[in-house]
Nucleic acid binder design. Structure first.
Length: 677
DNA sequence: CACCTGATAAACAGGG
DNA sequence: CCCCTGTTTATCAGGT
């Protein structure tokens, strides 16, 4: 019987078996046993938390801004002065007028709602999840955008005031407050950046090519001050560095000021782990705060297409100068502007609320889907053909906010933290414990072909159940071997090496492997000097795939018509299949022979299905279901036009030649044996 | 609903 | 006796 976890499993298993639906419970038990339930506190949670945090800070920033506004107003009134600016290079110290003004670009709650709803309501959970992520990111972007604009606005206002001469010389106090505020903004931006990054790292966010480019670049591990500075520069549209004089004095007490001048700031500093860093950073960044508007006059967020974009304004302004005048006169710091500002703030709050809700929803979804810890995934690791044990998670530590690693199981000491590449969809979704039906629902989720390439590494590093049948996998393992034959133990090793998933619950899947080897005629046991090895009987293997290629009759037809039973054509077929239906593996095969083989194996499966359809000569052998294994991958057998199907077929020969093909062909020379009974 | 297929559990046998 | 390998049977879940 089963060794390894044998006893344990067995006892549990039988005990449970007495219950109603044995196996499933067993599974659950098993997974629980493996400690899966504990370690999984999702980084998702962490991410969400951080998000909330960021939002709070944003809110705080707004408040600060407001305070500053009010204060300045007061000061202006009180002193009523027009003291000359202490110096031209001091613009940074000028108080922004409409700091919190939001630009029309920010999506409204309604829009967001719409977006979210559209996406959330998708029937397929994974899809939904993915979309959620995207939405989330979008929101993030929006927020970021918002702050950027805020900043610019701030600067503009400052400039205006200067020009208008209304702006009295500021008291140092005010200056420091401004700095504090700006710092606040900076912090928030940084936070957002970091949050995004971590999300990205965790695979919670998948940046789609189509999406508007994020202002942030992928930063390796957490940001470093320099990067932050750079970021800040970018965000604030790099203002001139002239203001040396004024800045220095203010920059010095920046931190202190920040802490002391506004409660929110302080809070944020305390609450946010990155705060200190940011604080330091801001010390270095004083120059950016000086606003020499002239530097890039035309990039005002409130000005576009010759029109003032102040909410509800739309006044036409010939040029930027006139726009400035307009802005200054029409949208000066008065009751109306402040009111509008407040409205905007409310909008922001709305957005935040909405975001919070959606976050919650996302969380629930992930929980429901048993998403595993979202600890930053390790970068896909290079295949280590030597031993499964070598798989280290070295790369996984990257994230600053990494969570405790999921406890590894006895069977899989090295199990890399379940994360795969960047695709949350595939990744976390499947990480659940053993699932009886591999291909069911969860595999219906279309996996974008973009993710495909990552699959190989993905399965190696993520405890995701591979969407292939045991038979397919076994066959692949065998075919990959130089001799086209493997001992049972070697097959085991292959499994664990290639799939993180099989690094646990060994008793279960090993039993399954043995079971499959014995059960399927396509696996032939060959007595060897040293015992026995297993080989694959391709013919039998092909035979055993019966039935239709679900949902893709046309393809089948084409296949049939052009497919000869003989092997030579196999490659072609495979190629075509790969193109038509299994893009995943096609892609996957590139650059990784091993996986390539796997890919081919899968193709074979497809292949077999065709063949079978074609020649019904089949046997008594239990017809096997066809390509279920393949389905998950490219799923959604989208109806192929005959032509489409045909095209690839003809290309076949040239198409996709993964290294393994040759091997596949080879089997004929191999000791493939006669068959079974 | 019946049937098929694959997964899982487990009993059992034989060998080292 | 234990473990590994291999076979076989039974059961369950999904899909058709």
């Amino acid at each position: 019987m089963m060794q390894e976890s044998g006893t344990e499993t067995k006892s549990n298993g039988s005990a449970i078996q007495n219950g109603s639906s044995g196996s499933n419970h067993l599974l659950q038990c098993a997974s629980l046993r493996e400690g899966r339930s504990n370690g999984e506190t999702p980084a998702a949670d962490a991410g969400a938390a951080e998000l909330v945090h960021v939002q709070q800070q944003q809110k705080q920033a707004l408040q600060v801004a407001r305070q500053l506004l009010l204060q300045q107003q007061q000061q202006q009134q009180v002193s009523g002065l027009k003291s000359p600016k202490r110096n031209d290079k001091q613009p940074a110290l000028q108080v922004p007028v409409s700091v919190a003004m939001m630009t029309p670009q920010v999506i409204t709650p309604q829009q967001m709602q719409q977006i979210l709803q559209q996406q959330v309501l998708s029937p397929q959970q994974l899809q939904v999840l993915l979309q959620q992520q995207q939405a989330l990111m979008l929101q993030q972007q929006q927020l970021q955008e918002f702050y950027k604009k805020q900043q610019e606005q701030l600067q503009l206002q400052l400039l205006q005031q200067q020009h208008a001469g209304k702006q009295p010389k500021e008291q140092p106090q005010v200056a420091t407050q401004q700095l504090a505020f700006q710092q606040q903004l900076l912090q928030m931006q940084q936070l957002q950046q970091q949050h995004l990054l971590s999300l990205q790292r965790q695979g919670l966010l998948t940046i789609q090519p189509g999406q508007p480019a994020l202002p942030l670049q992928p930063l390796a591990q957490g940001m470093i001050p320099t990067e932050l500075q750079q970021l800040w520069k970018e965000v604030t549209s790099a203002h001139s560095a002239e203001e040396t004089t004024g800045s220095n004095h203010s920059s010095l007490d920046l931190t202190t000021t920040c802490v002391s001048s506004s409660a929110p700031s302080k809070t944020s500093l305390i609450m946010n782990p990155h705060a200190s860093t940011n604080g330091q950073l801001s010390v270095h960044a004083p120059k950016r705060e000086s606003l020499s508007h002239e530097e890039h006059p035309h990039s005002h967020p409130l000005y576009g297409h010759g029109v003032c974009k102040w909410p509800g304004c739309e006044a036409v302004c010939e040029d930027f100068q006139s726009f400035l005048k307009h802005l200054n006169s029409e949208h000066a710091l008065d009751d109306r502007s402040t009111a509008q500002c407040r409205v905007q703030m409310q909008v922001v709050q709305q957005l935040e609320l909405q975001l919070a809700k959606d976050k919650e929803r996302l969380q629930a979804m992930m929980t429901h889907l048993h998403v595993k810890s979202t600890e930053p995934k390790a970068a896909p690791q290079p295949l280590n053909l030597v031993s499964s044990v070598t798989l280290s998670k070295s790369a996984s530590e990257a994230s600053p906010q990494s969570l405790p690693h999921t406890p590894t199981t006895p069977t899989a000491p090295i199990t890399p933290v379940t994360q795969g590449p960047s695709v949350i969809t595939t990744t976390s979704m499947h990480t659940v414990g053993p699932i009886r039906r591999r291909y069911s629902d969860k595999y219906n989720v279309p996996i974008s072909s973009a993710d495909i390439a990552q699959n190989q590494e993905f399965y190696k590093n993520a405890e995701v159940r591979p969407p292939f049948t045991y038979a397919s996998l076994i066959r692949q393992a065998i075919l990959e071997s130089p001799e086209k034959q493997l001992t049972l133990n070697e097959i085991y090793n292959w499994f664990t090496r290639m799939f993180a998933y099989f690094r646990r619950n060994a008793a279960t899947w090993k039993n399954a492997v043995r079971h499959n080897l014995s059960l399927h005629k396509c696996f032939v046991r060959v007595e060897n000097v040293k015992g026995a090895v297993w080989t694959v009987d391709e013919v039998e293997f092909q035979k055993r795939r019966p039935q239709k290629i679900s949902g893709n009759p046309s393809l089948i037809k084409n296949m049939q018509s052009s497919h000869a039973y003989c092997t030579p054509l196999n490659a072609a077929l495979q190629a075509s299949m790969a193109e038509n239906s299994i893009p995943l593996y096609t892609t996957a095969s590139m650059g990784n022979p091993t996986l390539g083989n796997l890919a081919s194996a899968i193709r074979e499966e497809l292949n077999g299905a065709m063949e079978h359809t074609n020649s019904n000569e089949s046997d008594s052998s239990p017809g096997r279901s066809p390509m279920q294994a393949v389905h998950p991958v490219h799923v959604k057998e989208e109806p192929l036009d005959p032509e489409e199907a045909e095209g690839p077929l003809s290309l076949v020969t040239t198409a996709n030649h993964s290294p393994d093909f040759d091997h596949d062909r080879d089997y004929e020379d191999e000791p493939v044996n006669e068959d079974m009974e």
